[in-house]
Nucleic acid binder design. Structure first.
Lengths: 135, 135
DNA sequence: CTGTATCCCCTCCGATACTG
DNA sequence: CAGTATCGGAGGGGATACAG
């Protein structure tokens, strides 16, 4: 066996039979999907720095289309991760922010994203090594 | 976790312009995709408890097809997350385990998955409340 | 036991155009 | 400014059959 993490408190992932994620048609799959989706992940991380308007998110998240930004925001709002506040003015003014629960999720998501960022050099090295062997 | 990463050195996710994940066509997107894919995530979590054979993973991860398990394992192996050791015997015997780097990634992934598991009751409550209002 | 090969559906996601 | 509607491509992923 390995470290304590599993034996002491790792009853969640360890007990796969009981975990929702290992069940086939489970709503937790959808939540995970929204959080880790192409744009959902970036939305969550972006909102960690505070409330944003739609257009602010659009500018900040380079490459996202209006369609997908809107879609991602709706998913995450339905999951209770994001608060959407619309001010009935002209022109429209809508603000998005993380709920307390959303902030917790966003921090987990960011931990994963940050790990990948800092680990990319190592991963690149793996790829380079494989290419070298392939020759 | 949850420590200094945010306030002190939170320049990673904060500096979106510079982060790989915010670039459009970046290999780090692929790594993230593999780690959070439907089955890749479950493979990583399963391997946290130690080395597994192909058929062991297949049994443990309920619902995965041979095709997708094989595919997911190959992706993660190419990314340097998984070690594949094949013993040339009859019948074939292949063992999969996490690399040191893979273990780091798996722990981040598990942290997110576990958070979702324990938070599902809260998320369900959100959905229930929305349905109540919809009436 | 450990996979590959083939077929095919389905959903994500981008592009474009339109609305309040 | 903040979206929605529609079309269409690409690829993830399942079912089945086959192979080493």
């Amino acid at each position: 066996m390995s470290d304590l993490t599993e034996e002491r408190s790792g009853t969640l992932s360890e007990a796969m039979e009981r975990g929702h994620l290992f069940a086939e048609a489970c709503p937790s799959r959808d939540v995970l999907k929204h959080l880790t989706s192409r744009w959902g992940l970036l939305v969550m991380i972006a909102l960690l720095s505070g409330t944003h308007r739609f257009s602010e998110l659009r500018r900040k998240i380079n490459g996202v289309s209006e369609r997908m930004l809107s879609q991602s925001l709706q998913w995450l709002e339905e999951d209770g991760m994001i608060d959407r506040v619309s001010y009935p003015v002209v022109p429209p003014h809508v603000e998005y922010s993380l709920t307390p629960m959303g902030r917790e999720a966003a921090e987990k998501v960011r931990a994963l994203a940050d790990w990948i960022e800092v680990s990319m050099p190592r991963i690149d090295a793996v790829w380079a090594e494989k290419r070298r062997k392939a020759d």
